[in-house]
Write a protein that binds this DNA or RNA. Structure first.
Length: 576
RNA sequence: GGACCUGUGGUGCAGCCUGGAGUGCACGCCGGCCUGUCAAGCCGGAGGUCGCGGGUUCAAAUCCCGUCAGGUCCGCCA
């Protein structure tokens, strides 16, 4: 049907008879004798010279046959890859007519996202979306190649799975053959891949769709895609190496440069320095410990087990209303408040600090704060005093709020976060909550504190972070029944409950479970960052809106009464 | 469950704060002119439930309340 793609016609083709197919991007008429038609396909544009009498309009689908000629002197278009040539003596075949598009098929005009998703089939013709989806394919291929090269075997796992009430809310699929029972769509292939290890697959990977019925965000859709990985007879170091290899391959293919080795921080260090377990390493503004400075302070607002601060360089001009706003935000994040100090030029009377608490500080306080933070005249210092974790998380948020940059902006700063705590917080029944999942292996050095001091126990789990986004997480799994029983006991899950929830997994483990460990990388986020996008919707062909609907298909929709009956379902009024 | 932002011809915006005739800009669309344009140009034209409902007012795109949709975020996401 065609000899060339539109964007690939070149001066070497001059004199050749060619046939190209594509969409009418633009038409420039010069009377009945002459019109220029820019024909577009996924490779780009080519100019076709046609008689002015040919009736073609925007987005018509054409096959154009003609002869490639150099453009007349002075009429080349340096902005086009095909700008030195054009197709002349054209015969035009209209393959499809088209209504005027609902918005311009053009990267220079940014249409409303709702419209773009409703008419996604038109939106996808834009170079931006073409580039994003093709980059995604390149990254998928690189990840696959990286895993294959390391001896991993791709295995598909079921989408119809059993409910495992734990973690994210699951999408439920009613059974037609057994009324009153349901499958669920997997939040991830977590349990399936562990069973593959018991099954001797040794090294498994999959580019797997995961489904979670949780609220949507710029970096979260109901359905998302992970590079899912699991390997037997390996430990944490092996997994980090496998995944680093594949991800750095993908980064290299996407950006043309291979990032240097991925640096590593412990969870404790990340929290201490950046106030988050997904630190953005592209900028400083690290948290500074001021606990010692204010150890004996008389200022009640600063008397706390932990005091830390961040310096906003040049932030001295921040308005009072903005500072009040930040204080409110600090409270919403769980802090008692926010102390702020403007650093004044030295020598101008008093303390050198300005702010509501400044006049209560001693000279030693001021000197200590300035030395510890290194703040200079014109800077703003934000201080939070509270429990250690609260101080860190509040300042961590403020740090990103005040110093953060768009996630996709270079440079790309990967980080491994290791040594996560095994448990985070305490649930309503007074039991610790698993930070990762209940099959995560505790750190061997901490195993003897599992019962006596559970919240101090580290786990063998690890996250991959890029520019402040969590790209993925993984862990070494528990393969020994005795350790697993102890974990369940600490979590307050009795043997019977464990059996009913995870029986098939625990049963499998009784048949010979190899030590194993794994990881999963969020591909949507990885692609978005390399595509220069702030939302994963831009790298998904057919995304949903924040309320979970699809303006193109109208999903979710009611189903016919017959379908409901087949499934044994009846709609009931929503509870008040 | 909550906070904030947005909603105006097909598209993107301005108008809203400070109420006074659906007013404006750019693109697109339709028709005409035009033989070297390239986001072509020139002339003419069509196209509106100012998201929806209610309230205040002599008068509402504009102010108030509610609601719907989209977005950003908090909660949520083992």
């Amino acid at each position: 049907m065609r000899t060339h793609r539109c964007g690939e016609v070149r001066p070497e083709d001059v004199g050749r008879r060619v046939r190209v197919c594509g969409w009418v991007s633009r038409r420039r008429e010069h009377g009945e004798h002459l019109a220029f038609v820019d024909l577009r396909d996924h490779t780009g544009l080519v100019q076709c010279v046609v008689p002015g009498t040919v009736d073609v309009r925007s987005e018509y689908v054409l096959a154009v046959e003609g002869v490639v000629r150099a453009r007349p002197a002075g009429t080349a278009n340096p902005d086009l890859a095909t700008g030195e040539v054009e197709i002349q003596e054209c015969t035009v075949e209209v393959l499809s007519v088209a209504e005027p598009p609902p918005f311009a098929v053009d990267d220079r005009v940014d249409a409303d996202e709702h419209l773009r998703i409703r008419y996604r089939f038109v939106d996808l013709r834009r170079p931006r979306m073409q580039a994003n989806l093709r980059l995604r394919a390149v990254i998928n291929a690189a990840l696959r190649a990286g895993m294959e090269r390391q001896g991993f075997c791709e295995v598909e796992t079921p989408l119809l799975w059993a409910p495992t009430p734990e973690g994210a809310r699951e999408f439920v699929v009613p059974s037609r053959l057994q009324h009153g029972t349901c499958y669920v769509l997997p939040q991830s292939p977590q349990l399936a891949k562990q069973l593959l290890m018991v099954g001797g697959m040794d090294r498994y990977y999959q580019i797997a769709r995961c489904l979670r019925d949780e609220d949507l965000r710029a970096d979260r859709q109901f359905e998302f895609t992970q590079l899912d990985v699991e390997a037997s007879f390996v430990g944490q170091e092996d997994v980090l190496r496998f995944v680093s290899e594949a991800v750095l391959d993908a980064a290299e293919r996407a950006t043309g440069t291979r990032p240097s080795e991925i640096e590593r921080l412990t969870w404790a260090e990340a929290m201490d320095r950046f106030g988050t377990d997904k630190p953005d390493l592209r900028f400083g503004m690290e948290l500074v410990d001021l606990t010692a400075v204010f150890a004996g302070t008389e200022v009640r607002a600063l008397a706390a087990p932990c005091v830390k601060g961040i310096v906003v360089e040049g932030g001295g001009e921040t308005t009072r209303s903005r500072l009040d706003q930040l204080t409110d935000q600090a409270r919403q994040l769980g802090g008692k408040g926010l102390a702020w100090f403007r650093v004044l030029p030295t020598g101008e009377g008093g303390t050198g600090l300005d702010g509501p608490l400044a006049r209560f500080l001693t000279e030693d306080d001021v000197a200590g704060l300035l030395v510890a933070t290194g703040a200079a005249a014109g800077d703003l210092v934000l201080v939070v005093a509270d429990e250690h974790l609260t101080v860190c998380t509040v300042l961590g948020r403020l740090r990103v709020l005040l110093g953060g940059r768009p996630v996709s902006e270079g440079p790309y700063r990967f980080a491994w976060i290791v040594d996560f705590p095994l448990f985070e917080g305490i649930d309503g029944d007074g039991n610790p909550v698993a930070a990762h999942h209940p099959f995560t292996m505790p750190h061997p050095d901490d195993l003897d504190r599992l019962e006596s001091d559970p919240t101090s126990v580290r786990s063998q789990s690890y996250d991959l972070v890029l520019n402040g986004w969590e790209l993925g997480s993984g862990s070494v799994r528990i393969h020994r029944a005795d350790v697993q029983s102890r974990i369940f006991a600490v979590l307050g899950i009795g043997p019977e409950e464990a059996e009913s929830r995870f029986g098939f997994l625990l049963g499998a483990f009784r048949h010979g479970a190899p030590p194993h460990a794994g990881f999963a990388v969020g591909i949507d986020r990885l692609v978005a960052i390399f595509a220069g996008e702030e939302s994963i919707r831009e790298v998904i062909a057919f995304p949903k809106t924040q309320s979970g609907s699809d303006p193109m298909t109208g999903a979710p929709k009611p189903v016919a009464p017959r379908v409901m009956a087949d499934l044994g379902l009846r709609e009931v009024p929503a509870p008040e």
